[in-house]
């Protein structure tokens, strides 16, 4: 019952947020205008351009990438059995940033300006490399808390190297990197949205199909193996899926903090369960809602100036994480 209420409420919130994101912004639109664009009655003019080519792709991106972030966070938290695991914490975003900086400087040195696809590919490679490194460490270190510490350290090292590169790179175009590294959904195009939608949907469906073995894995490796789970294969699958999801997000929107950590906790709190069967769709929905909300604020709070999405997510979600941790400690003692 509680769970049904949660899903209904999340769906309603999602609808409201989508409408709000379509309606609000520096160019305000009337409900009628929105309706006409959506139904295809109007196919030109400023209103059409803004809604169809700017706001809608951005809404779709926030929806898919927000969901992807939360599911990725849930996967990592399950994998490590640790509530503070998340793509940002494990150094995945920083790894992506480093590779983006490297490629940018390399190509700028040759006088080539990288298109957005190039950036995305670089971010993708960087995320997978950072994740691969964390995985490598995880083969040697069994303790999850140590692994998290390793991830954080990897993140710091990557950031330090990036800063160093930026300091000594002379081209002023490096400002692009700075913009990207703030994390933002602005400038999304339909082509990008199509690619990310396929990617995210496919990955999330596979994740959902793994909810049974993941549920057993939550009890602990020994019990999972005892009921017949191929633990090794499951671990690889989980880490690959979460890497794909977070790489996808980092590639298209840059590093976005806190959604990955906080949303699974929020959903657990609302549904009062940790079962993957409910949490995976729950996290996807919750992540989409939270990200749409934060992106809306990032766009509108200081319009026409946009704030980086990570500043908004940090302000709203960091306290959530802290409160969760404290509550959890109380509940256990």
């Amino acid at each position: 019952m509680r769970r049904i209420i949660f899903f209904v409420a999340a769906a309603v919130a999602l609808a409201v947020l989508i409408l709000w994101n379509m309606w609000s912004g520096s160019h305000s639109m009337t409900g009628r205008e929105i309706w006409q664009v959506l139904t295809g009655q109007v196919t030109e003019g400023a209103g059409y351009q803004i809604l169809w080519n700017v706001r809608l792709p951005r809404i779709c991106a926030a929806f898919f990438l927000g969901g992807a972030l939360a599911v990725s966070g849930f996967l990592l938290q399950t994998f490590f059995g640790n509530p503070i695991a998340g793509p940002y914490v494990l150094g995945i975003s920083s790894g992506a940033k480093l590779v983006v900086a490297l490629t940018m400087i390399f190509f700028l040195g040759k006088g080539i300006h990288l298109k957005s696809y190039g950036l995305m590919a670089a971010a993708f490679v960087g995320s997978l490399m950072a994740m691969g490194f964390v995985l490598l460490v995880s083969l040697r270190v069994q303790k999850a808390s140590l692994l998290i510490v390793c991830g954080i350290m990897i993140g710091y090292v990557c950031s330090a190297v990036t800063d160093l590169l930026v300091t000594f790179a002379d081209d002023s175009n490096i400002v692009n990197l700075h913009n990207w590294s703030m994390g933002s959904f602005s400038g999304m195009q339909w082509a990008n949205v199509g690619f990310m939608a396929w990617m995210v949907i496919l990955t999330c469906v596979i994740t959902f199909l793994l909810s049974k073995p993941m549920g057993a894995y939550q009890l602990g490796e020994a019990y999972a193996r005892n009921v017949g789970v191929n633990v090794k294969a499951l671990r690889i699958a989980m880490i690959l899926l979460s890497s794909l999801l977070s790489a996808c997000v980092t590639a298209f929107a840059g590093p976005i903090s806190f959604v990955g950590i906080a949303v699974p906790h929020l959903v657990k709190l609302c549904t009062k369960t940790a079962k993957p069967l409910i949490l995976i769709p729950g996290c996807f929905l919750g992540g989409a809602v939270v990200t749409l909300f934060c992106d809306g604020i990032a766009r509108c709070a200081f319009a026409p100036t946009e704030v980086s999405i990570s500043s908004v997510t940090a302000v709203f979600l960091a306290p959530v994480v802290i409160v969760m941790m404290l509550r959890k400690k109380e509940a256990k003692s």
């Binding site: 020994a222 019990y223 005892n226 017949g228």
Partner: peptide
């Protein structure tokens, strides 16, 4: 693994994690 799971069950000293 699935065949063995129907034959052998266990209770170990290590407690399972059981969030919520």
């Amino acid at each position: 693994g699935a065949e063995i799971a129907k034959k052998l069950a266990m209770v170990m000293t290590q407690r399972p994690a059981a969030e919520l």
